[in-house]
Simulated scan of single mutants.
Amino acid sequence: MSAIKIGYLLVRTLAKPVANSIKTQAKSHPNFKAFCIGVAQRSHRLEMTLKMKFLGYKTEKIRPLNDARAIESGANFLSEAFVFSVAASVILAENWRSRVTAKNRRNYVDDALESLEEKNQSLTELLEETRQMNQTNEDRLKQIENDNMQLRGLLDEVLSVSMGLKRHTEYQQQPTMIQL
């Protein structure tokens, strides 16, 4: 992240010599010189018209700038516009990068939450299945205990009738029940 910011700072720093190059090119190339003069004259007219309106003066005919001053003004305007556009593009690029980073972070968090919710749902289902199996096992154990008691009673009846022995329940202690 800091490398990106250093890169942005480097681009902004390199924009200043490019702006100075624009100023020198405006004086030497005829087509660029004419373009700078046109930009400067329009800028001068706009500036003077706005000044007159804001200060409350009558709108008068605006005299154009001389060529030397127009070239200098136009070159300054273009170089400043270049530096401004570089700075604005750096700011926009940083804003875009931070939005992408935040979006990726949100997507990661959303995916992690979705994964946790699915895991929680599966664990809840597993817990419910375990409870049902436990309840089924407890019901089976109670049924086996009841069957055991009936068989013991039946055995006691058979032994007492056939041999005249004491009842089984009279000489043995009842088994202890284990609670799960």
Rank of each mutant, 00 (worst) to 15 (best):
K27H: 10
K53W: 08
N31K: 15
A19V: 02
L14D: 07
L50I: 09
M52A: 12
K61P: 07
S73H: 03
I62Y: 00
T24M: 13
S79L: 00
C36S: 15
H44V: 03
T24R: 13
P64E: 08
P17W: 05
H44Q: 04
V18P: 04
E72R: 10
V39M: 05
A26R: 02
A40P: 02
E47K: 12
H29G: 12
R45N: 10
I22V: 10
A34I: 07
P30W: 12
L10I: 15
A15W: 02
G74S: 02
S21L: 15
L50S: 11
H44A: 07
L65I: 01
K27M: 09
L78R: 00
D67P: 13
D67F: 13
R63I: 11
A40G: 04
P30T: 14
K53G: 03
C36D: 06
G56A: 02
A81N: 05
K23N: 08
S21Q: 12
E47Y: 14
A19Q: 02
G56K: 02
K23Q: 12
I22D: 00
R12C: 11
A40T: 02
H44E: 03
S43D: 08
P30L: 13
L55M: 14
E60W: 03
V18F: 07
A75K: 05
V11Y: 04
T13W: 10
R42G: 14
K58P: 09
A34N: 09
L10H: 07
G74W: 00
T13H: 05
G56Q: 02
R12T: 05
G56E: 03
L14R: 08
L55I: 11
K51L: 11
Q41L: 01
E47C: 09
Q41N: 04
L14W: 07
K58M: 09
A26W: 01
G74P: 01
L78Q: 00
K33P: 04
A81G: 03
N66K: 08
F82N: 02
S73W: 01
T24L: 13
I71M: 03
G74R: 00
F54W: 11
N76Y: 01
T49E: 07
L14C: 11
Q25T: 15
F32K: 05
M48K: 15
E72Y: 06
K23H: 09
R42M: 10
P17S: 04
P64D: 08
S79Q: 00
H29R: 14
N66G: 10
R63A: 14
G74T: 01
F82S: 04
E80T: 05
N66R: 07
G56P: 04
M48L: 13
F32V: 05
A26I: 06
S21R: 11
S73E: 06
F82D: 04
L14E: 08
F77Y: 07
S43A: 13
I22G: 01
S79M: 00
K23M: 10
K53N: 10
F77D: 02
A34S: 12
F54E: 14
A15G: 08
I37N: 03
I37V: 14
V11L: 15
K53L: 12
F32A: 07
L55R: 09
M52H: 03
H29V: 14
S43I: 05
F82M: 06
A19T: 03
T24K: 13
N20T: 11
Q41D: 03
K51Y: 10
K61V: 10
S73P: 00
K33M: 08
S73R: 05
A68C: 07
D67N: 15
Q25D: 13
R12V: 05
T49N: 05
R42I: 08
